[in-house]
Amino acid sequence: MIEVRHLQKSFGRVHALSGVSFAVPPGQVTGLLGSNGAGKSTTIRIITGYTSPDAGWVRVGGALASHDAMRVRRSIGYLPESAPTYGEMSVQSLLRFRASLQGLRGKARKAAVGRAIDTCVLGSVRRRRVGQLSKGYKQRVGLATAILHDPPVLVLDEPSNGLDPSQITETRSLIRRLAEGRTVLVSSHILPEIERTCDRVVILAQGRLCAEGDLKELLAGGEHELVAEARFATPASRAVALDAAKAIDGVQRVLPREMDGGVARWRVGFDPSTITEPELRHTLGALLAKAGAEVRLLERERVSLEHLFLKLMEQGPPSEPEAKPAEDAA
């Protein structure tokens, strides 16, 4: 679990972060989004202990970064942007070195290096110099160094940066595998990647928090609405079904729209305290089947992350930063 509260950081006159707060729950992959200069890298660097905030605090796995920096750093596996590393070293010797920095030695170090090589599929290049590897392999080496000490928290800054589509797919599945039982924070510019990889997102703009939450919830626009698309045999059966849908207990509204080929598209708003989404889906499905309709779609309406992101960027960050003292960390 990562908790970030009221972070503030300035570089000269530039306010990189102005009261940013969010949480990264365990067992999930959380995406950190934002345009250039939004404060993503600064946030990540504060979480990993590379730099310190001017105000605010970070807690990782219950340990406060400002008070127990070593414990926090030990619990984090970090992949910086562009996976910078020592090009003159072989993959194996680099991993050994990184394992030593984590305090591993002897058999534990050997086992950790072997495990990381296996997990990141680096066996074929273990003796090659890192500087001679392709971008994709370098990125894998970076991931391998991040997971060497089996950290409960992974922080990955632009893990798909510069990779080709097949490498992106490999990296995505690797991150999903690594996420099992871990807290993972991924920063990326590639929104479709975040959409496919992450369970939650944190969106920053101009050093402020724009949005935070479950990705599906955010993409659903925070509204409780189902979208149903069905082809009806006759207009009469459609009208009957529409009335029946409006009469379902918990349904607040049904906004119908005619589409080509006799297909109707309904947006069904509901009160989740009266009827849950699965219950409504079941009831509505039964109702449409009874009306003899061919159901083409029955699910929560989703907008793309790109659409949401652009909308939030257009709106801009909240005008007032959260101003809270750092003392509440204790």
């Binding site: 202990g49 750093r73 910086p80 990184r98 984590q102 305090g103």
Partner: peptide
């Protein structure tokens, strides 16, 4: 210059 210091500086060493 290369950015590798970020890796060293975030390891559990003073």
């Amino acid at each position: 210059r290369t950015g590798s210091y970020e890796l060293v500086a975030t390891s559990p060493a003073s």
